[in-house]
């Protein structure tokens, strides 16, 4: 049996929405970071779904690129997060609002 592609897409949309809303409403930097990962992976799921549905390997290739970018982003992002926490324990994203106009 095979699950219809629309289920995957619905799941991906759901995951993306959770990620986006989480990013908007949460102040914890780590959680916000995880939300970004959630959105990336929602996108990945969409790519894979379409790759299978349309029988096109390009979608799966794109996923690899996304994974590579996500890995790089984790390295940089975690570095920044560690730096923020060093300055102030339990800091939220709103504490890092120094670059305002």
């Amino acid at each position: 049996m095979s699950v219809h592609a629309s289920w995957y897409l619905t799941l991906a949309a759901l995951l993306f929405t959770i990620g986006a809303v989480g990013l908007l409403v949460r102040r914890n930097v780590l959680v916000m970071f995880m939300c970004i990962e959630l959105m990336l992976n929602a996108a990945n799921l969409t790519f894979v779904t379409f790759a299978r549905a349309l029988n096109d390997i390009g979608g799966q290739v794109a996923v690899f690129f996304v994974l590579v970018v996500a890995a790089a982003e984790v390295v940089v992002g975690l570095g920044i997060i560690v730096a923020i926490f060093r300055r102030k324990v339990g800091a939220t994203a709103d504490d890092a609002h120094l670059l305002k106009g």
Binding site: L23, L24, R27, M32, H97, K100
Partner: peptide, 16 residues
């Protein structure tokens, strides 16, 4: 200049 609040969430809201 008010647009550039420095809050990540407001930028994210803008993007969204």
């Amino acid at each position: 200049r008010r647009v550039q609040s420095g809050y990540v969430r407001s930028y994210a809201l803008g993007l969204t």
